Amino acid sequence: MAIIKSPRLFHVIEMGQLDLAYNAYTHEMINLSIRTMLEELQPNLYEESLIRLVDFGHELGHIIESLAKFNIPHGEFVGIGMAMSSFLAHLKGVLSRSDMEHIFNCILSLGLLIYTDEYNCCNAHIPWNKIRTEGIEHKDGMLHLAVPEAVGQAPS
């Protein structure tokens, strides 16, 4: 949510992540996380719209997670999915290179992956072919890939 909806939450995560124990940023991080998620989910409680920012990282993350036979923790696959979606946004001219690198650095500094050679799951053609078929099943046959257009902002 920080990457696609809240520049402040992104900043707080960057500042507070150095020490995962309780610190000066913990309260704000928790409050902003909850508020940002609720703001995003509340208008679409019954999922009438299948275009959801909360899917950011999950669309590709779930695909590569299945390709890797679930051998890496779910959160790490979501990190890879966020990186891949950010890279695609950059390739399409939606996200600047500096913002993409900023996102990558934050993901990496949290101890998450942005890529893995294991399981051949990050070869671009393999997840792309799979998401075009399996990834759209729960989205009424349409691929709505959530991508950032800047740190803390996504196209509406």
Results as ranks from 00 to 15, higher is better:
P7K: 10
R8K: 14
R8H: 10
L9V: 02
L9F: 00
H11L: 15
V12T: 15
M15P: 09
G16K: 07
Q17F: 00
Q17M: 06
D19L: 12
L20Q: 11
I30T: 05
L38I: 08
E39M: 07
L41G: 07
L41Y: 11
L41C: 13
Y46C: 04
S49N: 10
L50G: 03
D55P: 03
D55Q: 12
F56E: 13
G57N: 09
G61N: 00
H62Y: 02
E65M: 01
E65V: 04
S66L: 07
L67P: 06
A68E: 10
K69Y: 11
F70R: 00
N71T: 01
H74L: 02
F77Y: 05
V78G: 04
G81S: 07
A83R: 03
F87P: 04
A89N: 08
A89K: 13
G93R: 15
L95P: 14
S96N: 06
S96Q: 13
S98F: 08
E101F: 08
F104Y: 15
I107L: 09
I107E: 08
L108P: 02
G111L: 04
L113G: 02
L113Y: 09
I114W: 03
Y115E: 01
T116A: 02
T116Y: 06
D117E: 13
Y119Q: 07
N120M: 10
C121R: 05
C122N: 00
H125E: 13
I126D: 01
W128P: 00
N129V: 10
N129H: 09
N129M: 11
R132S: 09
E134Q: 12
